Amino acid sequence: MQREDKHFEMTLDAVLTRLNDLKLAVHAMIQKLEMEYETINWPTFLDNFALISSHLTGLTKILAKEQCPPLRNRTVLPLLVSMDRDETLVNITEGRVPVFSHDIVPDYLRTRPDPITEQKMQQNEQKAANLTNDAAMKQVTQYNKVVSHVLDMVTKAREEWEIESSARIQQTSSISDTHLLVAALGMGKGLKMTMPMGGMPPMAGPGQMMVPPSIRAPSPMGGPGLSPGNVQQLGKAPSAVKTNIKSANQVHPFSR
């Protein structure tokens, strides 16, 4: 008996956790639909819907486990029924149930479905049990055809929407202009050199060598020229390596 009670408590805790997660997901989705209805997009809506679906699937798996005790065989009885307003009950139910009276007890403490709903469920279960394999395969095939047709329609509509969206987007860049800009910044292609206002000589361009003013050729305006001493000094560089040159007719010490 204690083992069954322990399993029952664990099942209730898991169910309550899933129900709280489901409640938060539904609340977040309703809030987005009410507050962000102008900016919400379809992928965000599908993500929220998938989250709710996952919580429902997890709740179904918990209730379908073999270790889960059949909750429909248990009875829930109220400890106190009153017509007065209960603030604690209001806070727990977030304002949905202000009074725990005789009118709402059968609805909120029901462990079995409504009699009409339960009757329809039994009819569907009996109909499914009496269904033959051939009829079931025919229904599955027909269902797959319908799903495939709907999928084709959705795919076609999506492709048309993507084509229309791409056509609406205006091109804001040019590949040729980008290449020209990169060539101008990196290699100076297409740029014109102008003489500055201060009379300074322009910088050396590609293929030209910059010559210092001390060895520059004389200009007509009387600028600094190239002196012979500077030419000799420029043409011959001092050597720091000492050499010892011997005559070729000297006998090699290791000659045979």
Results as ranks from 00 to 15, higher is better:
107 D>F: 14
201 P>W: 03
37 Y>S: 02
93 T>E: 00
133 N>S: 15
4 E>V: 11
71 L>M: 10
120 K>D: 07
18 R>D: 07
152 D>I: 05
122 Q>F: 09
16 L>C: 11
210 M>N: 13
32 K>T: 02
106 P>A: 01
170 Q>H: 11
203 M>V: 08
123 Q>R: 15
60 T>F: 15
86 D>V: 04
211 V>I: 11
192 K>G: 01
140 V>Y: 12
166 S>G: 09
200 M>A: 15
48 N>Y: 01
47 D>T: 03
160 E>I: 00
206 P>F: 03
223 G>Q: 07
112 R>K: 15
229 G>E: 15
254 F>I: 04
76 V>D: 03
208 Q>T: 08
245 I>P: 13
214 S>M: 10
79 L>G: 15
206 P>I: 03
91 N>H: 11
22 L>G: 01
45 F>S: 01
87 E>Q: 14
67 Q>P: 04
208 Q>F: 11
175 I>E: 14
170 Q>D: 08
242 K>D: 04
69 P>C: 02
122 Q>M: 04
233 Q>D: 14
255 S>F: 07
109 L>C: 10
94 E>C: 07
105 V>N: 03
140 V>Q: 08
162 E>W: 03
113 P>V: 01
113 P>M: 03
207 G>Q: 05
221 M>L: 11
131 L>R: 11
234 L>A: 15
10 M>T: 10
137 M>N: 14
19 L>M: 12
58 G>I: 00
111 T>C: 09
228 P>S: 06
97 V>R: 01
221 M>T: 14
253 P>K: 00
3 R>K: 13
252 H>E: 06
167 A>G: 07
253 P>Y: 02
125 E>H: 15
126 Q>C: 05
71 L>R: 00
236 K>G: 11
174 S>I: 00
214 S>N: 13
30 I>G: 00
236 K>M: 10
229 G>V: 04
158 R>S: 15
154 V>M: 09
134 D>W: 13
186 G>E: 07
66 E>D: 15
84 D>H: 10
231 V>I: 09
193 M>F: 08
174 S>C: 05
22 L>V: 01
243 T>G: 12
10 M>R: 15
242 K>C: 05
234 L>I: 05
5 D>T: 13
131 L>K: 12
29 M>F: 07
57 T>P: 03
132 T>H: 11
151 L>R: 15
16 L>S: 12
24 L>W: 02
199 G>F: 00
203 M>N: 13
116 I>H: 10
142 Q>P: 02
70 P>M: 02
170 Q>G: 10
167 A>D: 14
81 V>L: 05
127 K>S: 15
216 R>P: 04
195 M>N: 09
180 L>T: 08
130 N>T: 09
22 L>Q: 02
186 G>P: 00
20 N>H: 13
153 M>I: 08
249 N>C: 00
63 L>N: 06
87 E>K: 06
63 L>W: 05
48 N>K: 05
169 I>G: 06
254 F>A: 12
232 Q>H: 14
62 I>A: 04
210 M>P: 11
